[in-house]
């Protein structure tokens, strides 16, 4: 009887430790704790060129992540890209004339959307669209411009 109890204790401790480890892996190593989920409002922005922007890329303001890109699509009528993003609920006071730009994090980092607040008294809300946007910088275009400007001075 005593031996059986020791075995049960050992097995129980093992299973509890296993659950603890699983819990650790899911909550501590993944970004689940800073997921926004569906609690927020969706806004859209139109860009000439989204570059390497991916779904789930962060949306930041002053460098603070306030949302995520949820959808990137091409609009054949207006011939530009439509980016949908979800903004966390606690940041609902964003001026309606804010500007959105596609920026690059570090030299080999991914691209993200940086918002710059405008001066409007009205706020962005569910479904509203950002009017002022700045496309992604494509390296080839930049090099092309640089080369032609160097060629021009000579």
């Amino acid at each position: 009887m005593k031996q059986t109890r020791a075995v049960e204790m050992g097995a129980g401790l093992f299973v509890l430790l296993g659950f603890g480890a699983l819990f650790f892996l899911i909550t501590q190593t993944t970004g689940m704790s800073n997921e926004i989920g569906n609690k927020g409002y969706t806004i859209t922005a139109r860009f000439e060129n989204v570059g390497d922007l991916k779904v789930r890329a962060p949306v930041t303001i002053s460098g603070v992540t306030i949302g995520r890109v949820t959808r990137i699509a091409y609009d054949p009528e207006r011939m530009n890209a439509v980016v949908e993003m979800i903004i966390a609920k606690q940041y609902e006071q964003l001026p309606a004339d804010s500007e959105a730009a596609i920026l690059t994090a570090g030299l080999i980092g991914g691209q993200y959307i940086g918002l710059t607040p405008g001066g409007s008294e009205e706020w962005l809300e569910q479904g509203s669209q950002i009017e002022f946007t700045q496309s992604a910088v494509v390296l080839e275009n930049l090099i092309g411009k640089f080369l032609s400007s160097v060629g021009g001075t000579n």
């Binding site: 093992f14 299973v15 430790l17 296993g18 603890g20 480890a21 699983l22 650790f24 892996l25 190593t29």
Partner: peptide, 16 residues
């Protein structure tokens, strides 16, 4: 069958 997922999780945790 029961032990393997838990062993894997424990392995991962200690390895991290």
């Amino acid at each position: 069958v029961v032990a393997m997922p838990f062993l894997t999780a424990i392995f991962n945790m200690i390895a991290i």
